[in-house]
Computed example of a mutant assay.
Amino acid sequence: MAMSQITSDPVAVDEAPALAAAACLFHGFSDPSRLTILRHLALGEHRVVDLTEHLGLAQSTVSKHLACLRDCGLVTSRPHGRASVFRLTHPGALLDLLASAERLLALTGDAVTLCPTSGVAATARTGADEASA
Results as ranks from 00 to 15, higher is better:
10 P>V: 02
71 D>H: 12
92 G>N: 14
52 T>L: 09
34 R>Q: 02
48 V>A: 15
59 Q>V: 03
61 T>N: 12
115 C>Q: 15
128 A>P: 01
89 T>N: 04
89 T>F: 00
80 H>A: 15
116 P>G: 02
2 A>S: 06
20 A>W: 03
133 A>R: 14
51 L>C: 01
27 H>C: 09
125 R>M: 13
45 E>H: 06
65 H>W: 13
55 L>D: 01
69 L>G: 02
49 V>T: 14
123 T>S: 12
91 P>N: 06
133 A>V: 10
50 D>P: 06
4 S>G: 00
72 C>W: 03
131 A>N: 09
41 L>P: 02
103 R>V: 03
86 F>E: 08
67 A>S: 12
55 L>I: 07
28 G>T: 02
105 L>C: 06
129 D>G: 15
133 A>F: 12
20 A>N: 11
78 R>E: 15
66 L>V: 03
49 V>G: 12
30 S>M: 07
61 T>W: 10
46 H>P: 04
129 D>R: 15
99 A>T: 10
29 F>T: 08
47 R>E: 11
38 L>R: 02
102 E>D: 15
96 D>F: 14
82 R>F: 14
64 K>C: 07
125 R>W: 10
74 L>Y: 10
38 L>A: 01
47 R>D: 09
2 A>F: 03
113 T>N: 06
50 D>F: 05
10 P>A: 01
128 A>E: 09
26 F>P: 00
58 A>I: 05
13 V>L: 04
20 A>E: 08
50 D>K: 13
5 Q>Y: 03
50 D>I: 01
76 T>D: 06
111 A>W: 05
90 H>G: 00
93 A>H: 13
35 L>W: 05
77 S>I: 00
100 S>P: 00
115 C>Y: 15
39 R>C: 13
105 L>G: 03
124 A>I: 10
117 T>Y: 05
35 L>S: 06
27 H>D: 11
109 G>Y: 08
68 C>G: 01
88 L>P: 08
104 L>F: 08
28 G>E: 01
3 M>Y: 13
11 V>W: 08
7 T>K: 04
83 A>I: 07
62 V>T: 07
14 D>Q: 10
127 G>L: 14
11 V>P: 01
93 A>K: 12
13 V>A: 01
97 L>P: 04
95 L>F: 00
106 A>D: 12
63 S>P: 02
74 L>I: 14
118 S>G: 14
55 L>M: 11
90 H>A: 03
6 I>R: 05
90 H>T: 05
53 E>V: 07
79 P>I: 12
80 H>Y: 11
109 G>C: 04
84 S>P: 03
77 S>C: 07
33 S>K: 13
39 R>M: 10
87 R>S: 15
26 F>Q: 00
77 S>H: 05
105 L>K: 05
116 P>S: 00
39 R>H: 11
64 K>F: 09
39 R>I: 03
6 I>S: 05
47 R>C: 06
78 R>N: 12
22 A>W: 12
92 G>C: 07
42 A>W: 01
34 R>E: 00
105 L>S: 08
42 A>K: 02
55 L>E: 05
4 S>M: 04
43 L>H: 10
28 G>L: 00
62 V>G: 06
40 H>M: 06
128 A>S: 14
104 L>T: 09
